[in-house]
């Protein structure tokens, strides 16, 4: 008996039924994960977001075990991690670019500066544009925040939807991320005195904190080795 002959009424096949159930399960899982990611991206409400996100991940894994066609877990992890990475970076840099004279931004960014990265402490708010004054820092913010991180966010959304353009653009924007890491770290190294002199937890502190933002380096090997046929046009 072929799948096409197993009609369930009104021309609806068992394959259609499987497809519908898979989409519903994926949508249910994504509702929880998107809610979680929204909280996770705010940084300070992250602990509310984590259980919501994990609940969504477990719904998806359960659907996979039941034989439904859902997204691979690693695709889910990469997609949401790119979104959260972009959101967390944007949180600090949006404050530094446009909210640099609010009290909470001044306290948060200068305490961060005195603790990890002197670029956010040294002569803070002295430039006409406000915010961090370390050489090159503002340029990186302008290049990365409205351009690269927005592109990464869009690519991650397409990737999570299992679109071919999403996978392709995530490859492009993750390589952008490699360029960003290389340039940003080189800039910090060259102007190390401004960045690290007399901060509470200098080079080792900055690296211990920021090493977990290496999502592009983890995503790239996967994106280049995954079977691209699983991503649809």
């Amino acid at each position: 008996m072929s799948a096409a002959s197993m009609r369930l009424g009104g021309g609806h096949t068992a394959l259609d039924d499987h497809d519908d159930k898979s989409r519903q399960a994926q949508r249910r899982a994504d509702t929880w994960m998107i809610s979680g990611a929204l909280f996770l991206g705010t940084a300070i409400l992250g602990f509310i977001g984590l259980p919501l996100y994990l609940r969504g991940l477990s719904i998806q894994s359960q659907a996979e075990r039941q034989g439904l066609s859902v997204r691979p877990v690693i695709v889910t992890l990469i997609g949401y991690l790119v979104i959260i990475d972009a959101a967390l970076n944007s949180f600090g840099w949006a404050l530094d670019m446009i909210a640099h004279h609010t009290l909470v931004a001044r306290v948060f960014l200068t305490t961060w500066g005195a603790m990890f990265d002197g670029g956010y402490f040294w002569h803070y708010n002295e430039l006409w544009i406000g915010g961090a004054t370390a050489p090159g820092e503002k340029s990186w913010e302008i290049a990365l925040l409205p351009v690269v991180f927005c592109m990464r966010l869009a690519a991650a959304i397409g990737f999570l939807q299992m679109k071919r353009w999403g996978q392709q653009w995530l490859v492009v924007t993750c390589w952008f991320g490699v360029v960003a890491w290389t340039g940003y770290v080189a800039n910090m190294t060259i102007f190390a005195d401004v960045r690290y002199a007399h901060v509470a937890f200098p080079v080792w502190g900055w690296w211990l904190y920021d090493i977990f933002y290496i999502t592009p380096f983890l995503a790239i090997p996967y994106l280049h080795s995954v079977n691209r046929e699983i991503f649809s046009e």
Partner: peptide, 22 residues
């Protein structure tokens, strides 16, 4: 990826309170 996600969540939640209290 799971390690990075967990670490980012912990860092994100604790950075502001830790900086303020320090």
């Amino acid at each position: 990826l799971i390690v990075c996600l967990t670490a980012l969540v912990i860092e994100g939640a604790f950075t502001v309170p830790f900086c303020f209290i320090y």
